[in-house]
Amino acid sequence: MNTVATVSKVFIAFQDNEEARPVVEAILADNPQADAVYSPGLVKINAPGHLVVRRATIEEQTGRPFDLQQIHVNLVTLSGHIDEDDDQFTLSWNQ
C-alpha cells in the first residue's frame, strides 16, 4: 500500500563518470527541486513531478556542442513520461 502521498517523483540515473558529470551538473542547475544520490558507480537524480535536461546548459558546462542523444551512452535508468527534442529532454508524471 505504498502509493506516494504527494507529488510522484521522476528520476534519471547515469554512470558516475567524467562524461556524465556535466550532464548531471546541468540537471542540478536547471532543476533546483532535484537532488542527486550517489552510490558506487552510479548517480541517481530524483525530482518531484518533473525534470528537464537542457542542451544549452550542458554546452555551457563543457564549452562545446552536445547532442542530447549522447546521454544514451551513460544513461542507466529513468522513470516518467519522456518528451525529447533537440534542445531539451523532459521527464514527467501526469499527476
Binding site: 552510490s39 558507480g41 544514451h72 535508468t77
Partner: peptide, 30 residues
Amino acid sequence: VPFMSGAAHNGDMSTVTFGFSAQSDESRHM
C-alpha cells in the same frame, strides 16, 4: 541498478560495466 552498484562496490569493474552498459539500453526498453 542496486546489484550492479554492488558489483562496483565489490571491486568488479567488469561486471558493473557490462551491467550498466546493458542497462543503458534498458531505458529505451522500459
